[in-house]
Design a protein around this nucleic acid. Structure first.
Lengths: 180, 180
DNA sequence: TTACTCATGTAATACGTTACATGATTGT
DNA sequence: ACAATCATGTAACGTATTACATGAGTAA
């Protein structure tokens, strides 16, 4: 999936690995996170496969960068991937639920502490998403990216709802345990 | 994480790989899915590490089974894992959002078709979760598993909310695109 | 001079998926 | 006879994480 994300970003314009990493961190990381180590190795692999080309940039006053550009083959590959719709539901992975599922025999206060800590983290993330939305509305996008911007905004809206849903579940679960 | 799930189940009673797979499919698979190939290899590894022991069962009228039992070391390992609360938020991975993020330039009807197909799948999953709940309420658990049952029910409730949230987001996103 | 951001990479390991492979029993 | 379910495994591959490693420029 990282492959498609990298091709997707490079479809807008050529970028370095570092720039792709920072872009991901402020947008797609909310639904697909990657470490820089994986990004750099995947970029190399995509270049080996002919989906990207790269050139070294040596500007004075900044470290040497490798700029990646989408090739025709890469663009075709991206479009082919987008052309084949998802026909199944991807598997959900929720670490906390695994822990909670086996927590009936744990010390109740310890479980409550864990749930409260998660509540705080989810609240922080929701606050962060709320902040991001305001920012994005203020910083207007160039006209050719307006439609893209609405799609991006929609993924952010998903994040907000996910965090709200999670918070409500945690809140009620904490209540349930407290009043046992 | 599969490791902890297997230890968690075996903390209730000894089971075979096949039984663990079927148990997972009707409970934890909703938030952590695993293929039988991974289950069998992980069980072997846990036995190598001394967290499980196994014995062959040869009953007439059924294939040979390998019954796994949690060892003291395994139980200690499970309790240690449960004892260390989650202090971070696990990364979310949402395939559809990756696709949607890069879909502003795709054919609108194709995107709508994909969203509608996902809507149907999520509706099916929600219906399935609703059915499961009814079942679980009918089939009463033995008294010593009552508290466990409430915890399990709570993870099912999470699944219901997740699917409801997803459906609402899809519905509104479809509306948004249609009225563009 | 110390810490932070920019910038890139490799190596080892762990985890997860798909495909291949087999064989018995049960129900229609 | 055929399909479904029970039951277990291996091999190859793909993906993701953690740790190790380096070095320049910038701001306090």
């Amino acid at each position: 999936m990282l492959k498609q994300i990298l091709l997707g970003f490079l479809n807008y314009k050529p970028m370095t690995g570092y720039e792709l990493k920072t872009r991901m961190d402020e947008s797609t990381a909310h639904f697909w996170h990657a470490y820089h180590s994986q990004i750099y190795t995947t970029l190399r692999k995509l270049e080996d496969d002919g989906l990207l080309s790269s050139e070294m940039l040596e500007e004075d006053g900044s470290p040497t960068k490798r700029l990646y550009t989408l090739t025709d083959k890469g663009r075709k590959d991206l479009l082919a991937w987008l052309g084949h719709s998802l026909t199944e539901l991807p598997d959900v992975k929720e670490d906390l639920l695994v822990r909670f599922f086996f927590s009936a025999r744990r010390d109740k206060e310890q479980v409550l502490d864990e749930l409260r800590a998660q509540r705080q983290l989810h609240q922080q993330k929701l606050d962060y998403y709320m902040g991001l939305e305001a920012e994005q509305l203020l910083g207007e996008l160039p006209p050719e990216l307006e439609r893209d911007g609405r799609f991006w905004q929609r993924t952010l809206e998903f994040g907000r709802r996910y965090e709200s849903m999670y918070l409500a579940w945690l809140e009620e679960t904490i209540q349930m345990l407290q009043s046992e």
